[in-house]
Amino acid sequence: TQTTHELTIPNNLIGCIIGRQGANINEIRQMSGAQIKIANPVEGSSGRQVTITGSAASISLAQYLINARLSSE
């Protein structure tokens, strides 16, 4: 079954999640098997909405990979 998880990434950290020309986010997508959508910046908001869709296992793996990127910054 597909589930969806949403999280907010601070604007100053979204770059390390996306990577150069989307390299990091594509790697996270491939490794986790989850669909990951990053919302466009919202004016006045300090973060970007990230939506992860997939199986429970792929979502938790995607979250783990995202958190690993954030903590390495």
Rank of each mutant, 00 (worst) to 15 (best):
T1F: 10
T1L: 14
Q2P: 08
T3D: 13
T3C: 12
T4Q: 09
T8V: 15
I9Y: 03
N11R: 06
N12I: 04
N12G: 05
I14R: 03
I14S: 04
I14W: 02
G15I: 01
G15H: 10
C16M: 14
C16F: 11
C16W: 09
C16P: 11
I17F: 07
G19C: 02
R20M: 08
R20H: 15
G22C: 09
G22S: 12
N24W: 07
I25W: 02
I25R: 01
N26P: 02
N26H: 07
R29Y: 03
Q30T: 14
M31W: 05
M31I: 07
M31S: 07
S32N: 00
G33W: 04
G33D: 02
A34C: 04
A34F: 04
A34K: 00
Q35A: 09
Q35C: 08
I36R: 01
I36P: 00
K37S: 09
K37R: 10
K37Q: 14
K37G: 06
K37Y: 12
I38S: 01
I38T: 04
I38G: 02
A39D: 13
A39Q: 10
N40A: 11
N40C: 09
N40H: 09
P41T: 09
V42Q: 08
G44D: 09
G44L: 04
G44W: 04
S45I: 09
S45M: 12
G47I: 04
V50F: 02
V50I: 13
T51F: 10
T51A: 07
T51S: 11
T51Q: 09
I52R: 00
T53D: 03
G54R: 01
S55A: 06
A56Y: 06
A56S: 11
A57Q: 14
I59D: 03
I59K: 05
S60G: 10
L61W: 06
L61V: 10
L61D: 13
A62V: 04
A62L: 00
Q63M: 11
Q63K: 15
Y64M: 09
L65M: 05
L65T: 04
L65W: 07
I66V: 05
N67W: 07
N67G: 09
N67T: 08
N67D: 14
R69T: 10
R69I: 06
R69S: 09
E73P: 07
E73A: 14
